[in-house]
Design a protein around this nucleic acid. Structure first.
Lengths: 116, 116
DNA sequence: CAGAATCCTATCAGATACTG
DNA sequence: CAGTATCTGATAGGATTCTG
């Protein structure tokens, strides 16, 4: 961790954003979270289609990191053909909700950009 | 831009987060924004101290990018010794506000992490 | 004081090919 | 289908030195 936040900072307003940034700091991670939230189908192949442009390798590694960070759960069913499903954990759901205002900001900005 | 959002997406729920991520996607950017919001002094040297670990080069380049993105304003006073002050623009203030919930999430997470 | 210039390296992400 | 393995290229970030 490269965080600057010593937990229990003296003055009481450490920012906590950097903690969040470490979790969502991959190029595609927020898109993955978003897809996981919006879309009912959570299979690997579906996600690959939902996040156009991402490669299998990057999707796989991002999913593993998100899992390690406790925001994504991976359910593997031992079948043939193999089936694996990904879903947001409770924490992941709350993270997504916290991303809402940021998404609004980005949307407004995109609109403002176009109309000037 | 590597964004995947075509403005005016057909179904109406493009996410907009990636737009925001391009703005805050530097390692120290949110910390800079935070410092600019919290701290009255906005001089280069002060910022350097407020964001411990950042190098001058990275601080300078991040500030320039934030400025180009319209979230930071740079006021240069032609004096000796030179004085330059940075401040959030209106957009920057709103961006910071949008970062609030994310900061809360990160803080909660940090606490939860420690108590398990 | 507020940076610019240069050089360097680690990490990330893409392409391609292969496997249980 | 759901990945893994390997190689390669881009680029962000760091260290150091210099300047108006």
């Amino acid at each position: 961790m490269t965080t600057l936040n010593r937990p229990g900072a003296p003055d009481g307003h450490m920012c906590g954003i950097d903690v969040a940034m470490e979790v969502i700091g991959g190029k595609w991670k927020v898109l993955i979270l978003w897809a996981l939230h919006e879309h009912p189908s959570r299979r690997f192949g579906e996600l690959r289609r939902l996040v156009p442009g991402i490669t299998e390798k990057v999707l796989a590694s991002h999913l593993r990191e998100l899992e390690a960070d406790g925001v994504v759960r991976r359910d593997s069913y031992d079948e043939v053909p193999p089936r694996v499903e990904y879903a947001l954990t409770e924490q992941g759901v709350r993270l997504n909700a916290a991303l809402g205002p940021l998404a609004d900001w980005g949307r407004e900005r995109a609109v403002a950009q176009r109309t000037r």
